[in-house]
Amino acid sequence: MNTYFGLIGAGGHGREVMPMLRGMLQDKIAELNAHLLFVVENLEQETQINGYRAISLQAFFELEGVKRFNVAIGDSKVRQRIAEACLARKIEPFSLVANSVTMLDNNEIGEGCMISEQTIITSNVRIGRFFQANNQCNISHDCVLGDYVTFAPGVKCNGNVAIGDHAYIGAGALIKQGRQGKPLLIGAGAVVGMGAVVVKDVEPNTTVVGNPARPMVK
């Protein structure tokens, strides 16, 4: 029986992480009769992207065989919508962790994570479902991250930080360490701008920028 690994999203991030999927499965491809696919939600005609078969989401749903999925889309609300559509059809997610990722002790990471090259997760970290960490992120001890959180490349999240669902942390952002029993809080739906230095709590659905990070003035 064929096993199809559908990477949903063929934009820049999807094309970057497909080699991670290939590396993760390289010793199991023959055993699983595995096929690696790009899945594009509203693709009108099957095509090839970077040498991989690319099909529409509906065509993926209709494939015969075992199907697994992950969602390589940065917009967390779209990621949730597509993930829930797959889960409703009893398609199981796979987690995607690069071979160069370092994970230490006693971490809990939810289903459907996507953790890219040279990221470090130290100890006693809890991360929710469908988390994305781009290249060279660092998540230190005792952090708690919600569902559908996104880290752009090079985020440094120091210890004792709590981040709500659907928060987006921009490239190169630095988050100051909180305290045991009083973590630094980044609220649900918050956006931390590229290169921002977060030294105090961020309210939900607020965008902060700069050093030190402050709410963006529109």
Rank of each mutant, 00 (worst) to 15 (best):
residue 201 D to N: 10
residue 125 V to M: 03
residue 68 R to I: 08
residue 189 G to S: 10
residue 82 I to P: 00
residue 106 N to P: 07
residue 214 R to P: 04
residue 106 N to F: 02
residue 31 E to Y: 08
residue 164 G to E: 06
residue 183 P to A: 10
residue 179 R to V: 15
residue 10 A to P: 07
residue 111 E to P: 08
residue 51 G to R: 06
residue 190 A to P: 04
residue 57 L to C: 12
residue 101 V to D: 05
residue 161 V to L: 08
residue 179 R to D: 11
residue 113 C to K: 00
residue 71 V to R: 12
residue 5 F to S: 05
residue 49 I to G: 02
residue 145 L to W: 06
residue 184 L to A: 05
residue 65 G to M: 10
residue 218 K to W: 14
residue 38 F to W: 05
residue 28 K to H: 08
residue 69 F to L: 09
residue 82 I to D: 00
residue 158 N to V: 10
residue 56 S to I: 05
residue 158 N to P: 00
residue 131 F to M: 03
residue 216 M to R: 10
residue 47 T to A: 07
residue 106 N to A: 13
residue 30 A to L: 12
residue 135 N to A: 14
residue 61 F to H: 12
residue 52 Y to C: 05
residue 45 Q to V: 15
residue 24 M to K: 14
residue 10 A to N: 07
residue 174 L to K: 14
residue 54 A to G: 04
residue 35 H to N: 08
residue 134 N to C: 11
residue 160 N to P: 09
residue 12 G to I: 05
residue 12 G to V: 04
residue 154 G to A: 07
residue 79 R to V: 05
residue 116 S to V: 06
residue 180 Q to D: 11
residue 218 K to M: 15
residue 105 D to K: 15
residue 24 M to G: 12
residue 216 M to Y: 12
residue 107 N to C: 07
residue 131 F to Q: 03
residue 5 F to P: 01
residue 171 A to T: 09
residue 57 L to N: 07
residue 207 T to A: 03
residue 197 V to D: 06
residue 190 A to K: 08
residue 41 E to W: 05
residue 181 G to N: 11
residue 172 G to P: 10
residue 132 Q to C: 08
residue 69 F to N: 10
residue 134 N to L: 08
residue 53 R to I: 02
residue 213 A to M: 02
residue 42 N to I: 01
residue 9 G to W: 02
residue 144 V to C: 04
